[in-house]
Structure formats: structure tokens, C-alpha cells
């Protein structure tokens, strides 16, 4: 089984770092709300497992002026993509 982990707070919360040890091979991470600011920090994402799929919510990136920023590590998805991810992974763990 795989899990989708959503992170919804800014990097200062260190939520992603808190979530990281609990991730398993094949899991996915989705940044939403203030969590999308993680896309500005290489630090958190760089240490992550290369097997990990990372996503970021387009609407929240747009709202914060981050669409044109370098966010190589994360695939950008919209709300429909969010729903699809919830189906693709076996469960959703929310970190807030």
C-alpha cells in the first residue's frame, strides 16, 4: 500500500521534515496552501528519497506568485489532480 502525504504549512513549521521519516517507498508528497513555499527551498526536498513523488497544488502556487519560480522537483497539479492522487494512493495522511 502507498500513502499520499499532504503538507499545508510553510517551511518554518518543519512539517515536511517531521513527515519525512514516516515516508515509505512509493509514497507521494503533495504541497498545498502555505506548504507550496517548500518548493522554494531545496533543503527539504533534496534529502528526500529519489523514489518519492512530489507534487504541488497549482492554485496555491499561482496565488503566491510562485508559478514562475524554479520548482523542478515537484509536479504541478490542480484540484482535479489532487482528487486523482487521492485515488491513486491507497490513503491520504494530512500534515497540518
Amino acid at each position: 500500500m502507498t500513502s499520499l502525504h499532504t503538507i499545508s504549512k510553510a517551511p518554518s513549521s518543519r512539517l515536511f521534515e517531521c513527515c519525512l521519516p514516516a515516508l515509505k517507498h512509493g509514497d507521494g508528497v503533495l504541497f498545498i496552501e502555505d506548504g507550496v513555499y517548500y518548493c522554494l527551498t531545496d533543503a527539504g526536498l533534496a534529502v528526500s528519497n529519489p523514489d518519492l513523488e512530489v507534487f504541488s497544488l497549482q492554485e496555491d502556487l499561482d496565488a503566491r506568485g510562485l508559478m514562475n519560480r524554479k520548482i523542478d522537483q515537484a509536479d504541478v497539479i490542480d484540484y482535479n489532480g489532487f482528487v486523482e492522487l487521492c485515488c491513486r494512493y491507497d490513503k491520504v495522511i494530512s500534515w497540518f
Binding site: 499545508s8 492554485e59 484540484y79 489532487f82 482528487v83 497540518f96
Partner: peptide, 16 residues
């Protein structure tokens, strides 16, 4: 933002 996010998510899932 959570209450707004949850509503958008709920609408998207019914839409699918």
C-alpha cells in the same frame, strides 16, 4: 486556508 481548500476539493471530487 483549510476551509476553502476542503470546499474546492469537495467540489472537484463530485465533479469527477
Amino acid at each position: 486556508e483549510a476551509a476553502a481548500t476542503a470546499l474546492k476539493f469537495a467540489k472537484a471530487l463530485l465533479g469527477q
